[in-house]
Computed example of a mutant assay.
Amino acid sequence: MKLAINGFGRIGRTILRQVLALPQGSDVEVVLINDIAPLDTCAYLFKYDSTFGPYAGDVVAESAALNIDGHSFPMTHSADLSSVNLQGVDVLLDCTGIARTSDVARQGLSAGARKVLISGPSPAAEITLVLGANDDALGDAQIVSNASCTTNGLAPLIKVIDTVAGVASAHMTTIHCYTNSQPMVDAPRGDLARSRAGALSMVPTTTSATHLIDEVLPHLAGRISGAAVRVPTASVSAVDLVVTLGREMQASEFDTALRSAVAASPVLGWTDDPLVSSDLRSRSESLVIAGPETRQIGAQQIRVFGWYDNEWGFSARMLDVARLMATR
């Protein structure tokens, strides 16, 4: 599978780290990276990562390529991807965050890529896909959204609970680390609360998962609400979900059924250890359910808490979904 990465930011660089960690002889090959930043800057930010630590190998900026451990990755620096040669590319991973209109989202196809996978919500996508929730609906779509990191954690969890006991209604709060959409010091943003310094306060705000869950699991549309609290940590977020079940269940019965469903999921994990957020850094699951935090109140209300590395886990899903797309 030949991949190209458009946008060498947090997700683009994390995807490349994961590709480089694949076993020798892997079928995944990154044949091009495009980013508007200078090559020296891209090399530096790949080598020295504040979240995941320095890359252990050699990183060198060549004349028109990023050389990592002796492997040369050609780099272009075009704001208009349609001017870049992507012939032979199976899937373009668009990690720019700006592919929200059809003309931008289709630039990769115009340049020669067979398909485009967008690393976030996008109205321009033919389908919003979440592995472990609605991946059977992929079909032969050319432009696909990988949803959001929170939706990737929430949707598979909702699906297994719905399978186990049904979901009458639910409310999710994501406790989310700060991101580039927030300022480091107080500065104007559309959302007044998100105008405040992201590393100094807990900031109540919205989450795109609220409407994306309706797209991904349409039979549950209107039953699930959500909110977010941005917190002063740099990585790893959490889902705190309260569900009114569709039928009555004993606590032990629900716990056993949930553990079994999670074990069968390709993207969910479980821990019975009393972990904190930093323990989950670089975990590849979409969500790791914290067993000690699961609670049941009465016969039909449960609370489930889970951790997710919103960069590493999401990047792992980008590669998984790209593999699916490449086979269609």
Results as ranks from 00 to 15, higher is better:
A168H: 07
I5K: 04
V84F: 00
P204A: 04
S169E: 12
A65W: 00
D27N: 10
G226L: 00
D279L: 08
P54E: 03
R323G: 15
V91M: 03
A187R: 03
G246E: 06
D191L: 10
S181D: 15
D240K: 04
T206L: 11
R283T: 10
N146L: 14
G139W: 08
Q142N: 11
F305N: 06
V30H: 01
K47H: 10
D140H: 12
G53H: 13
A238T: 12
L245Y: 05
E126T: 01
F314H: 09
G9P: 06
V231G: 12
V185Q: 14
H211R: 15
I36G: 08
R283L: 09
G269F: 07
T271A: 00
V19W: 08
P218V: 13
L275G: 01
I143Q: 01
V185G: 11
T41K: 15
V288N: 07
V203N: 10
V167Q: 07
L16F: 09
G112Q: 00
G57I: 07
N85Y: 06
W307S: 06
L131H: 13
P266I: 03
A290H: 11
V216H: 02
V239Q: 14
A170N: 09
E29V: 09
D191K: 07
I127S: 00
A264Q: 15
Q300Y: 04
P274H: 12
Q300P: 03
M75G: 04
V304P: 00
L212N: 07
D35P: 06
V239I: 15
Q182F: 11
T151H: 08
N152L: 04
N134G: 02
V203T: 09
I297F: 14
G222D: 04
A165M: 02
G25N: 12
E62K: 13
